[in-house]
Nucleic acid binder design. Structure first.
Lengths: 139, 139
DNA sequence: ATCCTAACTTGGACTTTGTCCAAGTCAACA
DNA sequence: TGTTGACTTGGACAAAGTCCAAGTTAGGAT
């Protein structure tokens, strides 16, 4: 189970039941939940947990790099617990399903110096879009 | 000026003063405005224009592919009038500045068949992140 | 030119997503 | 076992966006 909790303890976090539950929800299913979805699942295990605490905890996890924030559309942010393994995202335009994918090569290498405009470029996120098998079989 | 307006007329759009103003705002400065910024600029030319109309018009322009919606963070969507020229975005993590950039090669080519999971992949958006020259010279 | 009508716009109410804060609670160390 | 500062809570607030009934108007028909 959660070595995530161990890492948090190592960083001096107080291990409250709330943080434990949020970590478990994220660690449990490696999907890309919104903050409200995390809250809903957390409430199943700890009915009094507040939205504010879920937002706080997610924000802290993002800050320390344990979780990635994914802005796939203009809607709610999604939280990706798979932060320690480089990957990109493939999103179904039909139903919104998200998959982790692993493209070849380093996307940064494709951006020539002349196209960097003096920026210190540190990363690249790729969002592939398409239709999942189910949505392909419908209009 | 706006051949965008010509294309809209060609599609059977009623050319209202509101739509004209929104098109002019987008066409005028090729930056990446939020809906509220578009509204603010539109109001300067047409004081009574409502937020709802700006949202409607932007949504329609996105639907017909004249404008791209860019979700760079979890905040407001940004609207990119440069839809007809393939490009990606480079964003400053310090100040949020956005530049259009042109990486080499086709990002789709980097995604092997085995990593597509049966999806019909149709596009890829790349968001490069880094620090702009100004922000590099500060913490 | 004028009329008609479907298409468009308006303003305000409402929803979703997220932030903030004062007051109360509790994990962890002594 | 007590203490204390870190954490949590609920509710108010804010930002971004959607929806709708009522009013207006562009543009084809007359």
């Amino acid at each position: 189970m959660s070595d995530l909790l161990e890492r948090l303890r190592g960083r001096g976090w107080r291990l409250t039941s709330q943080r434990r539950v949020v970590a478990e929800v994220l660690d449990g299913e490696h999907v890309h939940l919104t903050a409200d979805e995390v809250h809903a699942r957390a409430v199943e295990r700890l009915p009094e947990i507040s939205r504010a605490t879920v937002y706080n905890t997610l924000g802290e996890l993002v800050c320390i790099g344990e979780v990635l924030e994914v802005a796939t559309d203009g809607r709610a942010k999604r939280y990706d617990p798979n932060a320690h393994h480089a990957h990109q995202h493939l999103i179904c335009s039909g139903c919104g399903a998200i998959r982790d994918v692993h493209p070849l090569g380093d996307p940064l290498a494709a951006l020539p110096e002349a196209e960097r405009f003096g920026f210190t470029v540190s990363g690249a996120e790729i969002t592939y879009r398409g239709l999942c098998p189910q949505c392909s079989n419908r209009p």
